[in-house]
Design a protein around this nucleic acid. Structure first.
Lengths: 236, 236
DNA sequence: GTCTATATGTTGATAGAC
DNA sequence: GTCTATCAACATATAGAC
């Protein structure tokens, strides 16, 4: 079983027109994640992909569309992983269920594709860029990609938490996202694979983050249902 | 007592060479906060400030130095407010003390200068840019500006939390910063002054965020001291 | 101190050969 | 499909008049 032979590249199902498109998308992901939209030029992208600017424009039409294509391609597996983990988490109930849901929400960000799994500390995640870069198309794409998933998680939390103010719950979920994004944005020092061969340190950090976010959600919701008397949080 | 007459501008103590420098710094803050470094051109800045590119370069030398000057000017009052609030918070002890410290750390970000106080939802905070923009000078400046303050808060938390793993505490503080940054990065819907004239809704959101972050810190530290046996967390 | 004019390089996108 | 050559517009920074 050869680990990766050159021939394996031909198996890639993505290349509908050759693999130039795929190489471009890979290059875009890398550079956008590292530098952001405006700091990444078409020349840099196409040079990294081993092709020309005009080829990129032939395939994607514009720089913004190229980014867009990369984003949807890249976030699909992320959201799939989240939803899959959510299905398991929903079996449990109570605060343990909340913790499991939060874990399902956060963990794929950290390990699947765009997180710490693929590079040392300084490389930023594409997911972070999605929430940070200014161009309008990024905002729209972000909504298109994440809104349905966020709604699913909101509903799941609503069920697990009992009868709480939906607005407070929405805020709580967003704050827990902030925890995850900041931690993959290059501000936390993650151990290198050499320092942490078993991955136990990394695992523990992730456990800590999940505990942090879950406790935050629970505290925020409790505070809401304790302080609020008129808007529907205290009729348990 | 006239609220703000044009003559009041002359009182501004900043203008050492006229007020062109001050106007430039204001313009820089606005545009950098909204668009980030690479998306903000010297032309846009100087146009907004009502002066020329060469005047800006005369005063600051380069675009990066202009940003740098704006950052230090703008974060000084922020950090002063944080440290002042910290002094009060340190009087208290226990988990209530932790909550007060977190509040001192987060709240000035939300109200003083660079947060929600000065614009509607879509405008990003300069503080967010500091943690998000790629140029190397921003990273260095960020360290220079925030490292001492962070150390002070780390120490305070260390005292308030008892004997916990310093590394875990550092992570916990960073995660709570992530909560605050994400919430002022344009992803939370803050009420407009018209919708919320008394400010009570905003206040409640801030209370929720502080509760979220404090609970997160406490949970993360408890988890560490419960699961760890060898590295110095469990010898109480 | 502030301006106009300019130097020098880079950007995103396109035209047209192959 | 992919390239080279080119476009107009933009970038940062500087020179020199006032």
């Amino acid at each position: 079983m050869p680990p990766r032979s050159p021939a394996l590249r031909a198996v890639e199902p993505d290349a509908s027109t050759g693999d130039t498109k795929a190489r471009l998308l890979d290059a875009v992901v890398r550079l956008f994640a590292e530098r952001g939209f405006h700091a990444t030029s078409m020349r840099a992208i196409t040079q990294l992909a081993g092709t020309s600017v005009s080829a990129a424009n032939y395939h994607f039409g514009s720089k913004e569309e190229l980014l867009r294509a990369a984003l949807v391609r890249r976030t699909k597996p992320l959201n799939d992983a989240r939803l899959e983990a959510l299905a398991e988490a929903e079996a449990k109930g109570g605060t343990e269920g909340i913790r499991a849901i939060v874990r399902a929400y956060i963990l794929p960000l950290l390990v699947a594709g765009s997180g710490i799994a693929e590079g040392a500390g300084s490389r930023r995640s594409l997911a972070v860029r999605l929430y940070v870069d200014p161009p309008e198309i990024v905002r729209g794409t972000q909504q298109e990609i994440f809104a349905p998933v966020n709604k699913r998680f909101n509903d799941a939390l609503q069920r697990a938490a009992g009868d709480v103010d939906p607005k407070a719950l929405d805020v709580a979920l967003k704050l827990s996202l902030g925890v995850a994004l900041h931690s993959i944005g290059g501000h936390l020092v993650w151990p290198t694979p050499e320092e942490d061969p078993s991955g136990s340190v990394k695992e523990k950090m992730i456990d800590g983050m999940v505990a942090f976010a879950a406790a935050g959600i629970i505290a925020l919701l409790d505070l809401e249902s304790a302080g609020e008397t008129a808007s529907g949080g205290s009729q348990k």
